[in-house]
Design a protein around this nucleic acid. Sequence first.
DNA 1: ATGATTAATATACCGCAGGTAGATTAAGTC
DNA 2: GACTTAATCTACCTGCGGTATATTAATCAT
Lengths: 204, 204
Amino acid sequence: MVVAARRRPGRPRAGEVSVDRLELLASAERLIRREGPRVSLEAIAAEAGVTKPIVYHHIGGKDAVVQGLARRLNDRQGEVSRRAVAGVEDPAEAIRAFVDGYLEQLETDRNLYLYVTGASPGSGDVLALADRSATGLARLLVEIRGHDGNAPASAIAWAYGIIGMLHFVSLWWLRDADRTHAELAEQLTELLWTGLRGEGGDRT
Amino acid sequence: MVVAARRRPGRPRAGEVSVDRLELLASAERLIRREGPRVSLEAIAAEAGVTKPIVYHHIGGKDAVVQGLARRLNDRQGEVSRRAVAGVEDPAEAIRAFVDGYLEQLETDRNLYLYVTGASPGSGDVLALADRSATGLARLLVEIRGHDGNAPASAIAWAYGIIGMLHFVSLWWLRDADRTHAELAEQLTELLWTGLRGEGGDRT
DNA sequence: ATGATTAATATACCGCAGGTAGATTAAGTC
DNA sequence: GACTTAATCTACCTGCGGTATATTAATCAT
């Protein structure tokens, strides 16, 4: 394991650049990708060539690190999904593309995803990182559906529900992967689009 | 805080009853209900009037305790939901009753639920306790839907998805409760039953 | 009876991870 | 050049999960 050379204590000399928040997050991400989701703050600091207090100074506690990584992950995943959906007309097909993009990205960000979602020291930590996605998704839901008249109240509930659904399916799929992301996306889309009622619906 | 009198070290005298697995779990549940989801194993042991190693002897590590409590919680919640659904003909109404029962039970088991779901030391722990529910639900899905021909493969994915959905919505609802469980059940049922497609569906 | 074995317990410790206080070095400033 | 300030490291504290070992008493073999 190649550890970056540690600095001397004390203020760095004039020319030396100091680490910043961004660099720390990038280091954390690199380490997690390489070593898996069970890395300590100390290891993260070491990966950046600094020590724990620096992480606290620039970012904050572990929760803040998780938050920061979650944000990057969210943004990247949002970007992928947005690109996948772009130009797709049929809404069901759009959902399929969205989910498929989500799952495909998940495979490459696997460790990062596990770190971010698996790090719940207290309790309501998993939610904190779902909040951003949820509000965004809720907006989208209101937009595309109008939500049957007057109730955007249900949109936020739906958003959390959908995110939870994707999350759990993701964890399960990452653990015992027994199908391709394309297959899984297809299956999830069916549930999301037509619901448990199925294709039949009101036709009878 | 009334702490049960600790025993003397050594084998208990002839008449004295010894704690068993069931009693330990009951104590843990009682403590969590009273003190919230952030209780240590040591506190759980103390609540039962014993010490940590006893918990390890009778149950196992923390994971085992969580598992045990999760099982009780699952069973109770399953019971409530089963009773709520009994005799309901309309499938959509059955779903609504199921979800409503789930949410109502959640309010009384709040702390326990948070303890069980929030305790993820490593990573894939949340899944472990979802597994039982998921396989059961998957069976149910295959049963009531036949799953459109030949694919029970998607049933398990749907099951994890639905459980994840309920889970996330539950966490969110427990945190910022802004509606009644009846309202939320109604909204979730709409999503689960008709899907994002909505009532319209194939009618056009 | 009495010594050896076994069951059931408590005490005391280990290691790790998150978090923090205080020492350390050098740059800026008057 | 002395003083303040910035940025860093070292060293520690705490809480928790987990375990090794001592302690007590019942049980069993002789």
